[in-house]
Design a protein around this nucleic acid. Sequence first.
DNA 1: AGAACGTTGTGAATGAGTTCACAGACTAAG
DNA 2: CTTAGTCTGTGAACTCATTCACAACGTTCT
Lengths: 213, 213
Amino acid sequence: MDIPNRVIGRLSAYRRHLRRWLSEGREQVYSHDLATQEGITPAQVRRDLMTIGYTGSPARGYDVHGLLTRIGELLDPRPDEGIILIGAGRLGRAMLDYLAAQHPEYPVRAAIDNDPELVGRVIHGCRCHADGDLEDIIRDEQVTIGIVAVPADSAQDVADRLVRAGIRGLLNFAPVRLRVPAGVYTQDLDIAVSLEKVAFLARGQAKAQETHE
Amino acid sequence: MDIPNRVIGRLSAYRRHLRRWLSEGREQVYSHDLATQEGITPAQVRRDLMTIGYTGSPARGYDVHGLLTRIGELLDPRPDEGIILIGAGRLGRAMLDYLAAQHPEYPVRAAIDNDPELVGRVIHGCRCHADGDLEDIIRDEQVTIGIVAVPADSAQDVADRLVRAGIRGLLNFAPVRLRVPAGVYTQDLDIAVSLEKVAFLARGQAKAQETHE
DNA sequence: AGAACGTTGTGAATGAGTTCACAGACTAAG
DNA sequence: CTTAGTCTGTGAACTCATTCACAACGTTCT
């Protein structure tokens, strides 16, 4: 099976609507329901569901519960997929806060910061450790995902250490492109680039509307 | 002229390398220099520069200063493009901090929050106003861009008010897709979706590497 | 001056992602 | 039971983005 990245992003979005509808007691949805919510075409929705092998019924559409289950099989985090946060500055702490409040299913096992002031403190239920403990924590706590929230000039060093310690995926907030070997995956979330895109588009020099990516 | 969104994102990234090189005294770059930094092909770089009408010279490549100037013409914010932040929670304040420290060229004219505790306070040089002042500030302060950092259930309401007040572009952190009329542009920056993508990729069920979007 | 090299600019080929369009399937109503 | 209506599943068409491949050019070396 090979599911494109784009499709994963949309599945994640579909899931939110499905959960809401399920909680409202709705049992069936049509492709155009999801399409309307996401501002895409019904054909796109059907194609996505085809990609993950989920099949609906003509005249009744898709089963909300069944589809949620199927998407969950793909997206739900496994218990052995821990997260580590590198950089407990303002952005890092905002992430901890957000994840603790909105996404308890993604437990951040530890935070790392080189500020001695922070080390030992517990931030939103997550203990902050010293820089040197990085490798031990990854090995001992089944950490597979790293969130990089350090300044640009140390991001590559951090990434190298994470990769050497066996990390599988990186969510990168630093404004640099991380060089990682094949088999390790990075997703950049560059706020400055996004802001420049919006500013450019708002200026009216182009016409588009885009998600994440 | 019509420059695709993707190209804008890459130009923004190129600019960072060019600035670094300029500060190191470098005067020329080849397409493969930029390509290596960004992990793309030289052909892509040349195509991008062709798109913005910048031309280099065989055997000497591109002029660092000239290219920076050209990209600046496209991306530099204009003085009449103010930014307003809606939602001064942890994420909103992290954004203020980040922008004030890293991007003084994007002045956030005001923050808005409905928490009376926050109203009147100055956060990183930016005053926090009450909910009801939103429309006045946008009109009086030449604000064209809104950063939406409120909870999901109020995001669409906020977006509607911003649009009615004449905003041109939105940077949206809320986990919903905002519905806006043609002529207003939104860029979603959905942390949960990005995290689910990384987790999925890290699980090894696909092979990819993606920026922003 | 001439030859060798490495780079740009770009038409054409390729590839990825999206949308079209319709056959087939199911439901509900007559 | 039959008909009308609506939706899914999907091959094919299309659109957009990326990469290939090479002529033309500037530089450097002899």
